[in-house]
C-alpha cells in the first residue's frame, strides 16, 4: 500500500495507539463506524482521491460486509491502517485472529500497527 503522505482523504475511527498519527493529519474526518469510514473512502476513490481509513482491529468486523459486498465485487481497493490490540482480555481473541481474518478476506491493502 501507499505511504501515508500520498493519501489525500483520511477517515476512520480512532484507537489510542493511532492517536499520535491521527493528531498530525489535518484532513482527518472522524466517522461513527468503520464501515461508514470505508464508505466515505469509496466515495473519495470515485472522486479521484487516494483515501486512507484508520481503524482499531476491534472494528474490523464492522467492515466485513462492505469489504465482501462492495469492495470485492466492484473491484475497489481501499488502504487501511489497523491498530492491533490483543490485551486486555476483551481484545485477546480479535488480536489472535486479525491477520487470519484479513487473509480470509483476501485483503492486501493494509498496514498493521502493533504494540
Amino acid at each position: 500500500m501507499k505511504e501515508h503522505d500520498e493519501h489525500d482523504f483520511v477517515v476512520g475511527v480512532p484507537c489510542s495507539k493511532l492517536k499520535d498519527i491521527i493528531d498530525k493529519i489535518d484532513l482527518y474526518i472522524p466517522c461513527t463506524r468503520e464501515d461508514e469510514a470505508v464508505a466515505l473512502a469509496v466515495g473519495a476513490y470515485f472522486a479521484g482521491k487516494k483515501p486512507l481509513v484508520f481503524l482499531q482491529n476491534s472494528g474490523l468486523g464492522n467492515t466485513v460486509d462492505i469489504i465482501t459486498s462492495l469492495l470485492k465485487p466492484y473491484g475497489i481497493e481501499i488502504d487501511l491502517i489497523i491498530s492491533v490490540r490483543d490485551t486486555p482480555a476483551h481484545h485477546a481473541f480479535m488480536g489472535k485472529i486479525t491477520e487470519k481474518l484479513l487473509d480470509l478476506l483476501e485483503y492486501k491493502n493494509y498496514r498493521l500497527i502493533k504494540q
Binding site: L40, V42, A44, Y45, F46, A47
Partner: peptide, 10 residues
C-alpha cells in the same frame, strides 16, 4: 449515504 458524502466532499 457514506459513499455520497465521500463524493460530495471531494
Amino acid at each position: 449515504l457514506g459513499i455520497g458524502l465521500g463524493l460530495a466532499l471531494n
